[in-house]
């Protein structure tokens, strides 16, 4: 159609027929695009996956210095009742010594500082620590209570994290992420 049309009609003003062709073509494009959407949308997480996005964990038996690992959104989340020594060590670190100075805490502002209080469960609950235990380098799972700072150490490529899960050296670019959570000390934590 195009060849005939362009040669024949380029001399004319656009007329009713051109409009008809255009409208039909546009309708076809709109139809095809709308049909494509369900095919794309079906790839997104389904309703049951989204609904499973929130879990509640009982932490009443979590003593000081012990860790609980749970699965949230298919990833390991570590819940640790830190010792006073660990908290103190993390507090003493200067922000300028940190490779990544941002808290990466989903419960705080995106640009909050990576102080220990911002990495913990908050004021009065400094010993409580909830973190997605996934290395920010390439997604391996770091080992707990290991490495130079007694925090986490990733065996894949040697990233070293401190007791607040902050990257200190190694290839990982960011501190490990904290999920959205709501914690009642000694009782429960709701993640997600």
């Amino acid at each position: 159609m195009s060849e005939h049309e362009t040669t024949a009609d380029s001399e004319h003003e656009p007329n009713r027929r051109d409009f008809l062709y255009l409208a039909t073509g546009m309708a076809g494009v709109v139809g095809a695009a709308s049909l494509a959407w369900p095919f794309i949308d079906q790839m997104r997480p389904d309703a049951s996956t989204l609904a499973a996005a929130s879990i509640e964990v009982d932490i009443s038996s979590l003593e000081k210095g012990s860790t609980l690992q749970v699965k949230w959104r298919g990833k390991p989340v570590t819940i640790r009742n830190r010792t006073d020594k660990e908290v103190q060590e993390a507090k003493d670190v200067q922000l300028s010594d940190l490779k990544d100075p941002v808290a990466r805490n989903a419960n705080l502002d995106a640009n909050a500082d990576a102080t220990d209080i911002n990495r913990s469960a908050g004021k009065g609950k400094e010993n409580w620590f909830v973190m997605i235990q996934v290395c920010t380098h390439l997604g391996c799972i770091p080992l707990g209570e290991q490495g130079e700072f007694g925090g986490w150490f990733c065996p894949c490529h040697g990233s070293v994290y401190d007791t607040a899960g902050r990257i200190r050296h190694g290839p990982a670019p960011y501190n490990m992420e904290l999920p959205p959570f709501d914690l009642t000390p000694g009782k429960t934590v709701r993640i997600g």
């Binding site: 159609m1 027929r17 008809l20 062709y21 409208a23 039909t24 309708a27 076809g28 709109v30 139809g31």
Partner: peptide, 17 residues
């Protein structure tokens, strides 16, 4: 509704052609 409008459009386009 969309297909009905589309069909009418194609019908007239076809007539014109």
């Amino acid at each position: 509704i969309f297909l009905a409008i589309f069909t009418v459009l194609i019908y007239y386009t076809k007539k014109a052609i």
